[in-house]
Design a protein around this nucleic acid. Structure first.
Lengths: 348, 348
DNA sequence: ACATTTATTGCATTCGAATTCAAATGTCAC
DNA sequence: GTGACATTTGAATTCGAATGCAATAAATGT
């Protein structure tokens, strides 16, 4: 049996009914107009200091806070940035999300998070993004040219994170340079029989790194490279290594850290090999797991902090000046010399 | 001289200025009233099927999407849930955030993310939450009684994740039971000289597990337990283990997985011990890293999926029926028998 | 045919803050 | 005291969709 709720009756009493106080409530109590109250919270508004004091006092007393929805509706500024991230990215890179969140909140932006489990969900996410009129978007998920075009149409600035698309701003870590360095040093250390653990074909980062690694190997004279595709997970890396072993390789390049770690476990536990004596393994990312003592992976670390800072800088610039051109920034990763591979000092 | 701005004129012409089309634009083109357009998108509204068709056709043609801000302002429903998570939690549990996000979006809620780097930021976050009139909140950060009270005042339902507070709904994993099981089995396997790696004193989860472990040890007759506090990180666990070693313990209980992993590396790499022959180490969480082959940690796995599902169920229930009482749910973790500890089949 | 119910429809108002405009007040110089 | 000017102020309008209400049209009953 539903007990009698009294919300209806209280409706007209104003504020007594537990509804949040509005600028009108403050105005009424302070004996001023609603405009005056509004001006107290605007940065460059013209208002007498004394009146301002009074209004702020009343506002504090009754606990008035401007309603973000109403502000956004009228001012066309939500102070919200949508962040699109694949669940997978977040899984390997919680750091990226944490940094983005922290920096955005420093700049007084809130984060509307869209964590995709599949890339196909992007269209639905974009729909929500338009409806919510966010001020900008940072996407660590792949966007098709048609999707990128929607951003221009809707006049919403977007910055891609570790992705590219013509006409869109982006921030990424240089895979080509990184893989060239890793492969170059492996070659310089004398490795000749390689194996490659690549990623999903529809993943931009995976394909870029794969291409870069193969290119570097070819330039070093290595043309036969057995390859197994994984899906970025530990398990897939471990399985891939078991498969690659048949080809008798002595140096394995994995397009990310997690699979490289899986490969190390396969080598040591499943195949009884010593790393790096029998087998050199290198990854890419410099994710937290690569630093664990049991792995101490040789890898290329992405400068996450600098990249997220740049992403936000580019985004904010374009939010504040819609005519600013979309800029692309490329960062170099740093080679971390772990103990999972025998590599040379230089890639000669 | 009043500059000839054409907004006024275009207002009626509509849409030529690159602004998103509104329900008025659709109404004008379809030759109906704005109310009719609105009713097309409401679930139980009364509208003639033929007219509905027409309106939807026009809407699709000009790409009309209801503005979420305007809808929220008038209907007092944002369909947004705020998620408060400490950067640390997300770092060890990206899974939690991914699951919450996925389930919430299934239920047509968007996620406004607040990732704290310090617990002291909570007040600022709450302020933002009130301003944005979110429909509900899931908090994996500690809330003081005063903060919990604010939720009641503002009539915003909240569900705590792995935290408790009187008067607030919560979902958590049973630390007491889990630690009792772990410690019981370590005791049953003959361990007598224990060490404890605990966490920050201001962390609820850490203190609960610490208390539970000490209690279980005491009940088993072990009263002298050297203890070192860490901060949940790998490095702190590794350092703690080095420190504990002086006390000559042969079984180490860590209040989370990451520190347990650090402890394993300290034991093997820094101290030259074999795990689990010389030393048993157990953790708590069942986080991704605990499953890595090189560690294969003995731990208690939290049923993340069931917990997140429950959190959302409780939250949605309270969003839909404000009078629903705050419910508390406690889940049992499952003991994962890894190879990092010598434990008995049962905790006799 | 007429009364009565039911389903559609549009008008006008509402949500809460920002902003334009013009009126009101105050300041200063001469 | 007067005019020129800057500063405050409030009334009215705006953002875009939802909804109570009354009017209308259509369907049903007798």
């Amino acid at each position: 049996m539903p007990k009698p709720r009294s919300t209806k009756k209280l409706k007209s009493a104003g504020m007594e009914d537990g509804r949040r106080p509005t600028s009108y409530d403050v105005a009424r109590i302070a004996g001023v107009s609603q405009s005056a109250v509004s001006r107290c919270f605007a940065p460059n508004a013209s208002i007498a200091p004394a009146k301002r004091e009074l209004i702020l006092k009343v506002a504090a007393e009754i606990g008035y806070k401007p309603n973000a929805l109403a502000q956004a509706l009228i001012s066309r500024r939500t102070n919200i940035v949508a962040v699109i991230i694949s669940a997978r990215t977040n899984f390997y890179y919680p750091e990226v999300l944490a940094e983005l969140g922290a920096r955005l909140s420093d700049k007084d932006f809130r984060v509307l998070l869209f964590a995709l489990s599949q890339e196909s969900e992007v269209d639905g996410v974009l729909d929500q993004i338009w409806r919510h009129s966010v001020d900008g978007v940072i996407s660590a998920a792949r966007l098709s040219p048609a999707q990128v075009a929607q951003f221009t149409e809707h006049r919403v600035p977007v910055v891609l994170y570790n992705r590219v698309a013509s006409g869109a701003a982006s921030v990424r870590c240089d895979s080509v340079e990184g893989e060239r360095d890793l492969v170059g040093r492996l070659l310089a250390a004398g490795h000749r029989r390689f194996g490659l653990i690549s990623g999903p074909q529809d993943n931009y980062v995976a394909e870029e790194r794969r291409g870069a690694a193969l290119m570097a190997l070819m330039q070093g004279g290595v043309t036969q490279v057995p390859e197994v595709r994984g899906d970025f997970t530990y398990e897939s890396g471990r399985a891939a290594m078991r498969e690659l072993h048949a080809s008798g390789c002595e140096a394995v390049v994995s397009v990310n850290d997690m699979m490289a770690i899986g490969a190390m476990d396969a080598a040591r536990i499943d195949l009884g090999l010593s790393v790096p004596q029998d087998l050199s393994i290198v990854g890419f990312d410099g994710s937290g797991a690569s630093r664990l003592g049991a792995y101490d992976l040789t890898t290329v670390r992405q400068p996450v902090r600098r990249m997220t800072d740049a992403a936000i800088e580019l985004l904010v610039k374009r939010i504040e000046d819609a005519s600013a051109p979309p800029e692309q920034r490329l960062f170099s990763g740093s080679l971390e010399r772990g103990s999972s591979a025998r590599i040379a000092e230089q890639s000669d």
